[in-house]
C-alpha cells in the first residue's frame, strides 16, 4: 500500500513538474519578448504581450508598471494611469512607479486632487507602504511570535516577557486589522480611472439623465455603486465632493 502511494506521488510529480516548468519558461519568454518590443519602440506589441501575461492569471506590480509605460508611450493616458494604479496595489514603495504615475497625472486635463493626505501616510506608514500580501505575512509572523512567547510564558513567567507578549499582541492586532481593511478596501471601496477621451457624468444611471459635469481621460475617482452597467462615482472638487453616474464601459477599475 505504501509502495503504491509513493509510486502515485512520484508519477504525479513527474506529470506536474514539467508542466510548471513549461508555463514558467513560456512566461519568461513572453516577458523578455515584451521588454524587447518596448525597447524597440513597438509599444502595441509590448502591450499585447504584457496583457497576455495577465491573461495567464499572473498578477505582478512590475508587469502593470511596464504596461503603464507602454500605454503612456501610445498616448493612452487613462490606461497608463490605470495600469500604474494597479501596479501600486502590489508595489506601493516603488519610487519609479510613483514618479511615472505623478508624471502621467500631469498630462491629464482635469485637475483632481488625488493621493492620500501626507499626514495619514506618515502615521499609518505600514498600511501605505506594504501591499496586502506583505501585511498579511507580517500579521502571521507577529501572530506566531505572540502565541509562541505566550506559551513560553506559561512555564517561565517574567515581567519582561509579559511586556513583550502584550506589545506583540497589540502589533499583531494592528497589522491584522490593517490587512483586513486593505482586503476590504480592495474588494469593496474600489477606485476607477476614466479610459475614454471625454464623458458626461450624469445625475442618474441612464442616458436620459442630464449631464452634470464632464470628465476627461485619466480622471481618477472612487466608485460608490454599480447598477445596470453604470457606476456611481465620487471625486473631490475644491473643498467638497462631486458625485454622479458614468457608463461602466468607459471606466477602468483599479482591482
Amino acid at each position: 500500500m505504501k509502495a503504491l502511494t509513493a509510486f502515485s506521488i512520484i508519477v504525479l510529480l513527474m506529470i506536474l513538474i514539467p508542466s510548471f516548468a513549461d508555463s514558467s519558461e513560456e512566461r519568461s519568454n513572453i516577458f523578455l519578448e515584451a521588454n524587447q518590443a518596448y525597447n524597440k519602440g513597438d509599444y502595441n506589441r509590448a502591450i499585447s504581450l504584457y496583457e497576455k501575461l495577465l491573461e495567464q492569471n499572473l498578477r505582478n506590480g512590475l508587469i502593470y508598471y511596464n504596461l503603464g509605460n507602454c500605454y503612456y508611450r501610445t498616448g493612452e493616458i487613462g490606461k497608463a494611469i490605470l495600469s500604474y494604479r494597479r501596479s501600486e496595489l502590489y508595489n506601493p514603495r516603488d519610487e519609479d512607479l510613483k514618479a511615472n504615475l505623478n508624471y502621467a497625472r500631469k498630462n491629464t486635463r482635469d485637475k483632481i486632487n488625488t493621493g492620500n493626505p501626507k499626514i495619514l501616510e506618515s502615521i499609518f506608514f505600514w498600511y501605505y507602504n506594504l501591499n496586502c500580501k506583505e501585511l498579511f505575512i507580517l500579521f502571521l509572523i507577529l501572530n506566531w511570535l505572540f502565541w509562541s512567547l505566550a506559551a513560553f510564558r506559561l512555564f517561565k513567567p517574567s515581567a519582561l516577557l509579559r511586556t513583550i507578549v502584550l506589545v506583540l499582541l497589540f502589533t499583531a492586532i494592528l497589522t491584522g486589522i490593517s490587512a483586513a481593511s486593505k482586503v476590504y478596501a480592495l474588494k469593496s471601496l474600489r477606485s476607477g480611472v476614466l479610459i475614454s477621451k471625454e464623458i458626461s457624468v450624469r445625475s442618474g444611471n441612464g442616458i436620459n439623465n442630464p449631464a452634470i459635469f464632464k470628465l476627461h481621460e485619466g480622471a481618477e475617482f472612487k466608485i460608490l455603486d454599480n447598477s445596470d452597467g453604470w457606476l456611481k462615482i465620487k471625486l473631490p472638487h475644491n473643498s467638497s465632493e462631486m458625485k454622479g453616474w458614468v457608463e461602466k464601459k468607459f471606466v477602468g477599475i483599479v482591482d
Binding site: 514558467s24 512566461r27 519568461s28 516577458f31 521588454n35 518596448y38 525597447n39 501575461l53 492569471n57 499572473l58 498578477r59 505582478n60 506590480g61 512590475l62 508587469i63 508598471y65 511596464n66 509605460n69 502590489y90 508595489n91 519609479d96 501591499n131 496586502c132 500580501k133 498579511f136 482586503v183
Partner: peptide, 13 residues
C-alpha cells in the same frame, strides 16, 4: 520599464 524577472512572481494574496 523594469526588466527584473521577479515580475513573473504572482503577488496576489
Amino acid at each position: 520599464i523594469n526588466m527584473s524577472i521577479s515580475a513573473l512572481k504572482d503577488q496576489r494574496l
